[in-house]
Design a protein around this nucleic acid. Sequence first.
DNA 1: GCGACAG
DNA 2: ATCTTGTCGC
Length: 233
Amino acid sequence: MTEVRVPAGWPATPEAARAEQDRLRPLVDLVGPGPTAPRLVAGLDVAYAEDGDRLAAAVVVLDAASLTVVDAAVAVGRVAFGYVPGLFAFRELPALLDALDRLTAPPDLLVCDGHGLAHPRRFGLACHLGVLTGLPAIGVGKTPLTGTWDPPASPRGSWSDLRDGADTVGRVLRTRDGVKPVFVSVGHRMGLDNATDQVLALSPDYRLPETTRAADRMCRQALAGQVGRVSPR
DNA sequence: GCGACAG
DNA sequence: ATCTTGTCGC
């Protein structure tokens, strides 16, 4: 499999990365409301090798009605940036975009593993991916990055606002009765109500959306298949 | 100044 | 993210 290359001009310092976020942030579409009944929903996730250098990015497309896999693509490469909270997207973006390019057809919605607007500068991975692809995107995080909230009620479907300063940047959503909630936020071309509905519909049986679960499995197996291999020459 | 900090 | 055993509960 071909190795993903980091694009020329990719930010090399935190300062350059923040400048890039500031440049792209105005391009985010916060109006939405986005597709109410998307047919093709993509889940994106990345797995890292133990050395923390190699990674595999997977995009799995599900038929939203049946939640069955209809398309998928994977890309392997190397980490494109050091891990810095708030600049997380710069690590995985090249590999994720490469995988997206390999899909048969563009999906109607991207479900990202990480936050969108629920970010210190309102430009998390889901916003970044949305702007670069032009596709509707939402972020689903397992743990918070910024903001405060009250615990949502126990029943599945309950939620509370995720607020950061004067902004409502997302929603803390219970996808399973009595189970730790997930953090939903808008990425691009989506409204928060719609994003919440989509995440609930994608999570009928487990805490995380089926899209995320499918992508997680795929990138892990792809990484396992890379063990011991040397970068192609 | 001191913590907290997506994956 | 990843390293990791057992354990409680449906």
